[in-house]
Design a protein around this nucleic acid. Structure first.
Lengths: 136, 136
DNA sequence: TGTTGCGTCTGTAGTCGCTACAGGCTGTAC
DNA sequence: GTACAGCCTGTAGCGACTACAGACGCAACA
């Protein structure tokens, strides 16, 4: 018996800001459990599903992979007192973020310098293209 | 008539640091032109191909999309005196890089704070999981 | 009672930039 | 001759969606 306050996928999408197709995708890959269905086959969600999907969205916003999200969800479900496992996941991810940050900063520096070298575009032999390499 | 100093794909890969499969991929999508072939069908490259592929690699290292790389290559080929078009591409990309940088910095801040809140993992009710949202 | 128009369904294919096979041919060294 | 590395094509997989096509459901309004 689906509760009275059940709602369809469009409402869940609106509530969480997660695309409808993405919600179905999450279900397909087993990140979200399969919801109840109406007689016509419509997915029927409840308040708990909103919370769960918001959790996923926040984790995704923080850049966690879906695999990480899956693990974090499992941990949150288990309500284990200590959060060592969660912390491990987050720390590993934080390191990855910092590595990517360093890469991007480097890119930014080089790009900015290169663009600047181009000045107003009146330089003969574009230094930007030159920086990438002479062809033949 | 392929020049005497022609070499196969493995050498091009070693020379440029670009994976063999990636080179073939670049050729398939038309980023690199099709090289001459030996009697047995082996790809035969020349010095110019090394320069070209290095150009691609540097651009990729700077985060340009393959579509951007394609355009930059075309510009470099045209040897047009002014580099306005190249500058436009680079500036647009630089902006995208900066946007991503801002995103990542935000992620880093939140993640670092969250991990820190977890402390040594002895806190009851993991604040990390809590930050993502209560389930049920 | 239509019919309009949106919402939802499934299933498949496309995106980006590779990467990894499988299964076969080539070229060289011993 | 035979072992073994290198090369070939073609296809499928990755992550995380996104975008259809084509069919059905449902509520409102004339």
């Amino acid at each position: 018996m689906p509760a009275k306050d059940a709602f369809a996928i469009g409402a869940l999408s609106a509530e969480t800001g997660v695309n409808i197709e993405t919600i179905r995708y999450y279900e397909r890959i087993g990140l979200l459990r399969k919801p109840a269905r109406s007689a016509a086959g419509y997915r029927l969600y409840q308040a708990g599903d909103v919370a769960r999907l918001c959790f996923v969205r926040r984790a995704r916003d923080l850049g966690f992979s879906l695999e990480d999200v899956r693990r974090l969800l499992a941990l949150a479900d288990r309500k284990s007192r200590s959060c060592e496992a969660a912390k491990e996941i987050a720390e590993a991810h934080l390191e990855a973020v910092r590595a990517k940050l360093a890469d991007l900063r480097q890119m930014e520096r080089v790009l900015a310098a290169t663009v600047k070298a181009c000045g107003s575009g009146t330089v003969p032999d574009c230094p930007l293209l030159g920086a990438l390499g002479r062809l033949a």
